[in-house]
């Protein structure tokens, strides 16, 4: 029994790691007031970049770094379109998802079809090292958000950018930083999925995880530990869905596969009813003179 529980928890933590990176990236952007509906697109770009660079440089960490760089640039592009041209953030997010899926499919078919990463991240005590980094990042994000100046400024930008600007802090600068950092984290989540959990890219391999990350952030009431909780709820549901099927019995497989999504929706209803979005979330900021 104890072995089963340990194995269940180990599988859940291991397979939830990519989602945790993505959710943290979404969190960083959302607390600064940017709705990142395009996380799915940025993640799949990270998946392909990770495999290609890891394959050519024979180093998964460099692959992850390259994915952070490329997805970070996409994050900056997202920021530029939102901040400079005030394009509707939700629509832009959908556009990024379409671009991400289309671009990676095209490039994969043209140049990288069937490419194997060839190597992966090291592990410690049975878990890949990025799993520890992800948990470390949750703590770091909490410290940064609640104990450091940059975090307080970032949250303030998400709540009331006019006040932040009035004390001489650049709203745009803070939001650009959030977009770049958020994009980079989402990209690493993608790279870890394709090179840490698997070892190659397959089209549409993110399978909606960018959207689940959004739900996890809302579930967590825009806090790092809450977001971790949201990711784990989904992870429990996902792991349970396969254990129930493998365990036999009369449990219909359709219900087993629905389980993670039902659990996430129920958890959102139960724990996030009073969740308060950052007041300026998704609101275009116009600098007053």
């Amino acid at each position: 029994m104890a072995d089963s529980i340990i194995s269940f928890l180990a599988a859940m933590i291991r397979y939830s790691t990519p989602l945790l990176f993505v959710a943290l990236g979404v969190l960083v952007m959302e607390v600064s007031g940017i709705v990142n509906m395009g996380a799915e697109g940025m993640m799949i770009i990270g998946c392909l970049t990770g495999v290609v660079v890891t394959h050519h440089l024979n180093n998964a960490w460099l692959g992850g770094l390259a994915a952070m760089l490329v997805a970070g640039l996409f994050g900056l592009l997202f920021g530029a379109l939102v901040l400079e041209f005030r394009i509707n953030q939700t629509v832009l997010g959908v556009a990024f998802n379409l671009v991400g899926a289309g671009l990676t499919t095209t490039l994969n078919r043209a140049f990288f079809d069937g490419m194997n990463a060839g190597t992966t991240y090291g592990s410690f005590l049975g878990f890949p090292i990025p799993t520890y980094i992800a948990i470390g990042l949750v703590i770091l994000a909490w410290v940064a958000m609640y104990k450091m100046k940059i975090g307080v400024q970032m949250r303030s930008v998400g709540e009331n950018p006019v006040v932040v600007e009035s004390v001489g802090i650049s709203v745009k600068k803070l939001r650009y930083i959030a977009c770049a950092a958020g994009g980079a984290l989402v990209g690493f989540g993608g790279a870890f999925l394709s090179t840490g959990i698997l070892s190659q890219f397959t089209e549409n391999m993110t399978d909606g995880r960018g959207f689940i990350a959004l739900a996890a952030v809302t579930f967590g009431k825009y806090t790092p530990f809450g977001t971790l909780g949201g990711v784990l709820v989904f992870g429990i549901g996902e792991t349970l869905s396969y254990r129930l099927q493998a365990g036999g019995g009369a449990f219909p497989y359709e219900f087993a596969l629905m389980l993670p999504y039902i659990l996430t929706v129920l958890a959102l209803c139960a724990f996030s009813r009073n969740a308060k979005d950052p007041a300026a979330l998704g609101v275009p900021y116009v600098k007053s003179h």
């Binding site: 397979y15 990519p18 999925l193 959990i197 397959t202 549409n204 391999m205 399978d207 792991t239 396969y242």
Partner: peptide
Amino acid sequence: DDALKAKQA
């Protein structure tokens, strides 16, 4: 498409 699901299975 989602190879991770097959791994979990």
